[in-house]
């Protein structure tokens, strides 16, 4: 079997509401090997969550629809599977952890019950075995007194504990791929690191790949091998963590990096932001989607959509001025040079 676990080609997702058509994802491509982690970053509305949910074909239809592309998981094109075959994949081979653990659990059942349900859906175990496995999963995700906790309700758990339960549910069937949609965003800062460490530990013990969706680059540096930077439904930069961290190329990535709060930022200094807001995806965008907010934008950026090119080895970016021959100087990014562009 090849080492390739997942290959997404030109994925397109659109949402229709009334007469407006929103192109949420616009030709996203990436691939993922076994036991490899990929991070998808981008601000709200950049299409990262939609990309992730389309992998499981969980986009609510209507209004959403996957209008193009391929999702090859192992040897199957997920977009061509029947609903029944798709259900066998969900939770069994690909699982998902959602953003808000406080609403991800059904309030009327005990947490144990919900883990058992996930196990029973895909594995032929009897009640008792499923229960044992569920308790084991609770222990695995670091919940003390798992046996007692098994019969407690979600409201009796703290946020971090609930997210641990969610991880237990998602991993109960040893999936080959785990999609984590901002798993730490709704948690306390002190708990975030615990959850990330837990995911890392578990990944080693059950050999799963992870797609980590986040807008926190720190999370990516910590836990991923590859990065995908998304903006307005497009991938604007992709490469290994090492490359993107040491040598980011796209002006949007620079903006994201500059917006991070680091220890070196003193309290008097104004925090750096990317001015403006992402474009309205229901409008036709000609040219580079980031042009209106880009400090380096020139006429060509408004006219021509940049292609993804390999600007350095294994490092792709979509910018007219970042090629193997030509590079922008990142230091100039701080200078407000948008006078020649009407936004």
């Amino acid at each position: 079997m090849s080492d390739m676990l997942l290959k997404v080609e030109n994925l397109e997702v659109q949402f229709r509401s009334g007469s407006t058509l929103t192109k949420a994802v616009n030709g996203v491509s990436f691939s993922l090997n076994r036991k490899e982690n990929i991070g998808i970053v981008g601000e709200s509305g950049s299409g990262k969550s939609v990309t992730a949910t389309s992998l499981l074909r969980l986009i609510p239809d209507p209004p959403g629809k996957i209008t193009g592309g391929k999702i090859i998981f192992e040897d199957k094109d997920l977009l061509k599977l029947s609903d029944k075959a798709m259900r066998k994949i969900r939770g069994n081979e690909i699982s998902m952890i959602f953003q808000d653990p406080s609403t991800s659990l059904n309030p009327v059942y005990t947490v144990g019950n919900q883990i058992v349900e996930s196990i029973e859906t895909h594995q032929h175990l009897n009640r008792k075995e499923a229960k044992e496995k569920a308790v084991h999963m609770l222990e695995l995700v670091g919940i003390p007194e798992a046996r007692k906790r098994f019969s407690m309700y979600p409201h009796e758990f703290s946020g971090g504990m609930r997210q641990r339960v969610m991880i237990a549910i998602a991993l109960a069937c040893n999936p080959k791929l785990l999609i984590a949609d901002e798993p730490t965003t709704a948690l306390d800062v002190t708990v975030q690191a615990q959850i990330l460490n837990l995911m890392k530990d578990l990944q080693h013990s059950i050999d799963t790949s992870i797609i980590m969706i986040t807008h926190d680059l720190g999370v990516i540096w910590e836990s991923c091998d590859k990065v995908l930077v998304m903006y307005a439904g497009n991938v604007v930069e992709s490469g290994t963590v090492q490359e993107i961290h040491d040598n980011p190329l796209h002006p949007y990535t620079w903006g994201l990096l500059d917006s991070q709060i680091t220890e070196s930022v003193s309290s008097e200094e104004e925090l750096s932001t990317i001015p403006g807001s992402p474009p309205d995806l229901s409008l036709d965008i000609s040219g580079c989607p980031f042009a209106a907010r880009c400090p380096f934008a020139e006429e060509i950026c408004l006219e021509k959509t940049p292609e993804m090119i390999e600007a350095a080895e294994g490092h792709f970016t979509a910018c007219h001025f970042q090629t193997k021959e030509h590079r922008l100087d990142r230091k100039e990014a701080k200078v407000d040079d948008r006078s020649n562009i009407k936004s």
Binding site: R87, F98, L105, N106, E117, A170
Partner: peptide, 25 residues
């Protein structure tokens, strides 16, 4: 609700989602 989406992401059938999750809530 998000937990319905979670249940769907775990591969549950419509019947199960309706009678075990939607109706009780």
């Amino acid at each position: 609700s998000e937990f319905i989406e979670v249940t769907r992401s775990l591969g549950a059938k419509h019947r199960r989602i309706i009678f075990q999750h939607v109706l009780p809530n």
